[in-house]
């Protein structure tokens, strides 16, 4: 699959993981077909489109938005997005003058049920160390500068509550359907390192 040099670079860990899977399977601790099914679920079913649906519904349905603010777990589960790392949810709402950013400084807690598996940067020391002490610097790394006077609230996911940022609805989207709105909701806007896309 890769050239020879790449293969030998990775061969230690690849061999170790293969050995682990062989031993765990032969000992009956895992069924490799279950491992396939788990991987497949996150490759094809559970990802940021789930969260985009939640956001688009919050933008278009004030009753749902209120429910999301009051009990995000129930509101999100009602859309069918109830799964691992989404058992207990909180939604936080960006507004003029108020921006939210989500981090897990202690590990990599992330709302899998609505965003899928976290990107490498979310799990890595640069983001985890700086988001709490220098959120504006982190946003600048993403090319995002907030308007003067905007306050930032950083949510450090230290428990089993998982956070979903509801970005501001972009201007120029009056009358858009939920499906149309969902196309503007990028993953990073639901973490707080970006805004929702502008309509083209």
């Amino acid at each position: 699959m890769h050239d020879h040099a790449d293969h030998s670079h990775m061969s230690d860990i690849e061999a170790r993981v293969r050995a682990l899977e062989t031993v765990l399977t032969e000992k009956g601790y895992i069924d490799p077909a279950a491992v396939d099914a788990i991987i497949q679920t996150y490759e094809t079913e559970i990802g940021p489109r789930n969260g985009a649906h939640v956001v688009a519904k919050a933008w278009s349905d004030p009753t749902f938005r209120d429910w999301l603010a009051e009990d995000a777990t129930a509101a999100i589960h009602s859309l069918g997005y109830a799964s691992r790392q989404g058992e207990h949810m909180q939604a936080v709402f960006n507004a003029p003058g108020q921006h939210h950013l989500v981090v897990c400084t202690l590990c990599s807690c992330y709302p899998w049920s609505v965003l899928g598996l976290p990107p490498v940067w979310y799990k890595s020391p640069p983001f985890r160390s700086r988001a709490v002490i220098d959120p504006r610097g982190v946003l600048a790394d993403f090319g995002l500068t907030l308007p003067q006077g905007t306050a930032i609230t950083v949510h450090d996911s230290t428990a089993e509550m998982r956070y979903l940022v509801i970005p501001e609805r972009p201007a120029g989207t009056d009358g858009w359907s939920e499906d149309q709105l969902a196309t503007l909701v990028n993953r990073d806007s639901m973490i707080g390192t970006a805004l929702a896309d502008k309509p083209v």
Partner: peptide, 27 residues
């Protein structure tokens, strides 16, 4: 630790072994 560097269109896994580790640990 330096700047936060995000990878455009990042895949869930950067090698097959990463996927196997995630699946095994969850299983």
């Amino acid at each position: 630790f330096g700047p936060v560097v995000s990878e455009p269109d990042e895949p869930n896994f950067h090698a097959e072994w990463e996927a196997r580790v995630m699946g095994m640990v969850v299983a």
